[in-house]
């Protein structure tokens, strides 16, 4: 490890800018899908995939690879755009997202190269991450497992079952991430089902908790690097983010949790993506 150079950060910024554009173009073409929770976690996932994750798009089943598990399956447009840019499948596949016979299903499934877990039903991913981390430890593989959850997803009881088991098994090869954008489908998380104090909850479950600004590359990089040094405990990175980040009329909008932009709206979007 080591601090990222300004060159590396510029590279991440460029990928993030393109990722945002690809997500919105893909959703406009599909005509349905979830922009809000894809846009919020762009920098988080771009940093993971293009700075930290040990993986090989030309050999997606490399046994020693790190695993990324998208537990909030509605973030599929974000993950697909990153996987395509990384080279897991052609960018042209994005045009048929959510269409009949397409490779890219509305939510991830196992036929898609680079996908480690099917998702769509919230709350299961961290349990699967615990199992992956146990398997890696049994085999003595260097694999690290990363799981991205939504903040609304924290309402699922299974998340907390998994939280207890990860600390029981002292899984320091497991990193959880929460896209803390404050909004779920029906409105604000603190109105629908209050989560705060969220960091204290995870600390109480014996996790190493790191809170970051989800758009500060130095903080994100430091969080991923620090998590690697922690022994005998799993790490939870709570990334403070903004739903719909980067597009003014989508930011803080529950509507754009699950509504795709129209093709007409793309004119406004291109102006904002400069």
């Amino acid at each position: 490890m080591g601090m990222a150079t300004s060159q590396e950060i510029t590279k991440l910024q460029d990928i993030a800018r393109n990722t945002r554009k690809v997500i919105l173009e893909t959703l406009a073409e599909a005509g349905s899908g979830h922009p809000g929770g894809s846009l919020s976690a762009v920098e988080l996932l771009v940093t993971l995939y293009f700075y930290k994750l040990r993986h090989d798009p030309k050999n997606p089943k490399w046994p020693d690879r790190d695993r990324f598990i998208l537990s909030k399956g509605h973030g599929a447009p974000l993950l697909y755009s990153i996987l395509a840019q990384a080279g897991y499948f052609p960018m042209s596949e994005l045009k048929s997202l959510r269409k009949l016979g397409a490779l890219l299903q509305g939510h991830p499934d196992m036929d898609i190269p680079g996908i480690e877990m099917p998702a769509g039903s919230e709350g299961i991913g961290l349990s699967v991450g615990v199992g992956q981390a146990l398997a890696a430890r049994l085999d003595g593989r260097p694999t690290r497992t990363y799981v991205l959850m939504g903040d609304g997803e924290q309402g699922e009881g299974e998340v907390w079952e998994a939280a207890m088991s990860a600390s029981k098994f002292k899984l320091d090869n497991l990193v959880g991430m929460i896209d803390r954008n404050g909004i779920q489908q029906d409105g604000l998380t603190e109105q629908i089902m209050p989560l705060e104090p969220l960091a204290a909850k995870w600390r109480a479950f014996n996790w190493n908790v790191i809170e970051v600004d989800g758009y500060d590359y130095l903080q994100l990089i430091e969080a991923f690097d620090t998590a690697e040094m922690v022994k005998n405990r799993p790490t939870m990175i709570i990334a403070h983010t903004v739903k719909g980040k980067g597009i003014s009329f989508m930011e803080w909008s529950p509507t754009y949790h699950g509504t795709a932009p129209t093709k007409e709206k793309m004119e406004d979007i291109y102006k904002e993506l400069k």
């Binding site: 046994p63 877990m117 299961i124 349990s127 699967v128 199992g131 992956q132 146990l134 207890m164």
Partner: peptide, 24 residues
């Protein structure tokens, strides 16, 4: 190779799935 997940059946199935993804 033996894991007791306590009284948490959803996690039991999820962790079993994760181990299977990991080749078990």
């Amino acid at each position: 190779r033996f894991f007791n997940l306590g009284i948490a059946e959803q996690n039991l199935v999820g962790v079993a799935a994760g181990l299977a993804f990991g080749g078990k």
